[in-house]
């Protein structure tokens, strides 16, 4: 089972929830930190040593001696990453999405691969959690290709995989949550939380993924999120009360269920509920949201 933890708004507690789920999972799990612009799951899941691999993407390199200036490469590129200007082919590797279309259509075989470094993928183990962290190269503008590389490390043979998604609702989030059996949306009870939650709900509905809600820092007095969830028939699977102890634990890099053991059972129940929802959706029984 693949569970993606997403949010819309940043800072609502995606990683907090993801590491708690990893901690209470009945079996060893993979935790993929796909928030590659600002990964932070490793601050809570403390693997002693992380193996680090460089991740790169193929971008075109043109041999002018072979190029016949037919313009086919330019025609297939949706991103103007390879263009013909006058009698020259220019490549803008930073715009390339790595599809290799230009290499396939070139009748002269003039285009070869030149790697563009995306960042690193780090893997480690800690207490039954296989942590995989993507870290985008500073200066790299495109995160989905690196997120794909991180997702290649998803658990196999039915092992559960938790995907800590980046915030927002654009391409990086789509890349992170696609293929998930269930999307857990984490929000906070504020007007900002609600605004971005509604966008995230639109996104997962468009993707046709089963989803449910966690309200973090509950108890602020703002009930807009609860009313929205009821109106939209979105199940609130867990509410995490706002407490000073929770904030202190977070600031020290502690997993919330370790610092507040009374949350262990609710998180175990959440895990079970997610599995039921995902199973129901897979069998076509569950309405969506779950």
């Amino acid at each position: 089972m693949r569970i993606a933890i997403a949010s819309g708004k940043g800072g609502t507690g995606k990683t907090t929830v993801a590491v708690c789920l990893a901690r209470v999972a009945p079996n060893p799990v993979r935790l993929l930190d796909c928030d590659v612009e600002e990964p932070n799951a490793h601050l809570f899941i403390k693997a002693g040593h992380m193996e680090t691999f460089e991740a790169a993407m193929p971008t075109p390199k043109v041999d002018p001696a072979l190029c016949a200036l037919c313009g086919e490469c330019e025609k297939i590129c949706r991103f103007s990453a390879i263009v013909q200007a006058g009698k020259k082919i220019l490549v803008f590797p930073e715009l390339c999405h790595g599809c290799k279309g230009c290499m396939m259509v070139c009748p002269a075989g003039a285009i070869s691969e030149s790697p563009r470094l995306l960042g690193t993928v780090e893997t480690g183990q800690a207490e039954g959690v296989g942590l995989v962290t993507g870290r985008l190269r500073v200066g790299e503008a495109m995160s989905p290709p690196l997120i794909r590389k991180v997702k290649e490390h998803a658990g196999t043979n039915g092992a559960d995989t938790l995907i800590d998604a980046p915030p927002g609702t654009s391409c990086p989030v789509i890349e992170a949550v696609s293929g998930a059996d269930f999307v857990l949306l984490v929000t906070e009870p504020t007007p900002f939380g609600l605004n971005d939650l509604a966008l995230a709900v639109e996104t997962v509905r468009a993707l046709g993924l089963p989803f449910g809600l966690v309200i973090n820092r509950a108890g602020s007095g703002y009930d807009g999120v609860a009313r929205y969830a009821a109106r939209e028939h979105i199940p609130v699977l867990l509410e995490i009360p706002e407490t000073r102890k929770a904030a202190e634990a977070y600031s020290r890099g502690l997993v919330l269920v370790d610092a507040l053991p009374e949350l262990k059972e609710p998180f175990k129940a959440l895990y079970r509920r997610i599995r039921e929802c995902a199973d129901a959706a897979r069998q076509g029984k569950g309405a969506r949201p779950c």
Binding site: R78, F79, S80, A81, V83, Q84, A85, G86, L90, F92, L95
Partner: peptide, 17 residues
């Protein structure tokens, strides 16, 4: 209009041509 980016690159091509 189908191209999501690269306006400057395309305009540059037009001027070169």
């Amino acid at each position: 209009p189908d191209l999501p980016q690269g306006a400057g690159i395309q305009a540059g091509k037009t001027v070169v041509e």
